[in-house]
């Protein structure tokens, strides 16, 4: 038997919204520690990895490891029926062919029950090697979203270059070119919210090119976290990570574009 409950069901809906345009379906792997999900886009350019810790749930029970094969568009249809402040419970039998989703309003005056048919998904899991990244940037997620959206109107590839002082997003297209730089926030600045700051950890300067179409897709997760962390190395995928307080994180890996 697998059973879990989230006070903020809305968070789960946002999570599904953050993967469903990239990956059509996937296996929720549930074990005693939490839930994980991995999936690639159809072109195998990007990989999304979701990790939810059991500590983030108000209730969590997993007697035996279960795999829930889920079509995200279908799940999203059911989650649409959930109220913004509803509590969400998910239940599945060990060998069942469906999972139940229960939405309950704050005052328990409304309860909704949905059964989602599960799928058998034959999906290979990819191993992500432990990597020492050359540059790690933490910035407001809304700022990253705006940059990706605005630059994609000018070109389809962004060059991200990082130095100790700043991270620069450059774009070029038929109409011209441009760049936007974000300076590392002053370390002595004790005022203000930490999530508003731009923090750069740098081992050595790095520059890589990425498809804006995918980055824009990743920013669907902006609603999940105030900050986003970008990790870059030379000739390796970019990691775009959104951390949710104690629930876990969603990570997107994007293969670089190589300048020929």
């Amino acid at each position: 038997m697998f059973e879990c409950a989230l006070i903020q069901g809305e968070l789960f809906r946002k999570l599904i919204a953050s993967v469903q345009d990239l990956v059509q379906d996937g296996n929720f792997m549930c074990d005693a520690n939490g839930i994980s999900l991995q999936g690639m886009d159809s072109s195998h350019v990007a990989l999304v990895a979701l990790a939810l810790k059991k500590e983030g749930f108000v209730e969590y029970r997993c007697d035996r490891d279960v795999t829930l094969g889920i079509n995200f568009a279908n799940l999203a249809k059911m989650l649409k029926c959930m109220g913004a402040k509803d509590r969400l419970s998910i239940r599945a039998q060990d060998e069942g062919d469906s999972a139940s989703f229960v939405f309950e309003s704050e005052d328990s005056s409304r309860v909704s029950n949905f059964e989602l048919k599960l799928m058998q998904i034959d999906q290979e899991q990819l191993g992500v090697p432990e990597t020492q990244y050359k540059a790690v940037i933490r910035m407001p997620s809304s700022e990253f979203q705006r940059i990706c959206k605005d630059l994609s109107a000018i070109g389809d590839t962004v060059s991200i270059s990082v130095t100790k002082e700043a991270v620069k997003f450059s774009v070029g297209g038929d109409i011209g070119s441009g760049d936007m730089s974000l300076r590392q926030s002053e370390s002595g600045d004790v005022d203000g919210d930490d999530s508003e700051k731009v923090m750069i950890e740098l081992e050595e300067p790095v520059q890589q090119n990425f498809a804006l179409r995918y980055l824009n897709n990743f920013t669907k997760a902006t609603a999940l976290s105030k900050t986003v962390t970008l990790s870059l190395g030379t000739d390796m995928p970019l990691v775009t990570e959104y951390k949710m307080d104690n629930l876990g994180s969603i990570r997107y890996y994007l293969a670089p574009k190589i300048d020929e």
Binding site: H44, V45, L126, Y253, K257
Partner: peptide, 14 residues
Amino acid sequence: PFQQQTITNFFFKA
């Protein structure tokens, strides 16, 4: 001028 790499070039099959 850019060539898109695939993620499977970097990550191994588990």
